[in-house]
C-alpha cells in the first residue's frame, strides 16, 4: 500500500517524532510494505463481528474515595530534566 511522504510527515508530527529526510524515506517504504501486508485483513468479512478490546470480560473495578498521599513529591520531581521552585520547567510553548 503506497503511503506518501506527506502522510509520513503528518503522522510523525502527530507522534512528535523529528525525522531526518533519510528517516522519512525509509519509513515511507517500510510502512508501505507493512500496511500492504496488513491489507490482507480486507479479505476477511467482519460484518456483524463485535470488536474485542480486552480478552477478559468484566466490568472495571472501583477504588473507594480515600486519600493516600504518595508523600514524596521530591522523588517525583528529582527525575525532571529541568525544574524550578517545585515545578517542571519546559521551553516556550508558542514558537515563532
Amino acid at each position: 500500500m503506497a503511503i506518501t511522504r506527506e502522510e509520513v510527515l503528518h503522522v510523525a508530527r502527530l507522534a512528535r517524532l523529528a525525522l531526518s529526510d533519510a528517516d522519512a524515506d525509509r519509513l515511507r517504504e517500510q510502512l508501505g510494505d507493512l500496511l500492504e501486508y496488513m491489507k490482507q485483513l480486507d479479505g476477511l468479512d467482519t460484518s456483524g463481528v463485535v470488536p474485542t478490546s480486552h480478552a477478559v470480560e468484566m466490568g472495571t473495578p472501583f477504588r473507594e474515595d480515600t486519600v493516600l498521599p504518595f508523600g514524596d513529591p521530591e522523588a517525583i520531581l528529582s527525575n525532571a530534566p529541568d525544574r524550578e521552585d517545585g515545578f517542571f520547567r519546559v521551553p516556550r510553548i508558542i514558537e515563532d
Binding site: R16, I76, A80, P81, P91, R92
Partner: peptide
C-alpha cells in the same frame, strides 16, 4: 517533560518534544 532524556538546545516546546 517530567523524566527521562530531554534534547538539548531546542528553541520551543514542540521542537523539544520531537
Amino acid at each position: 517533560v517530567r523524566y527521562g532524556h530531554r534534547a538539548k538546545g531546542a528553541s520551543g516546546l514542540i521542537e523539544m518534544m520531537s
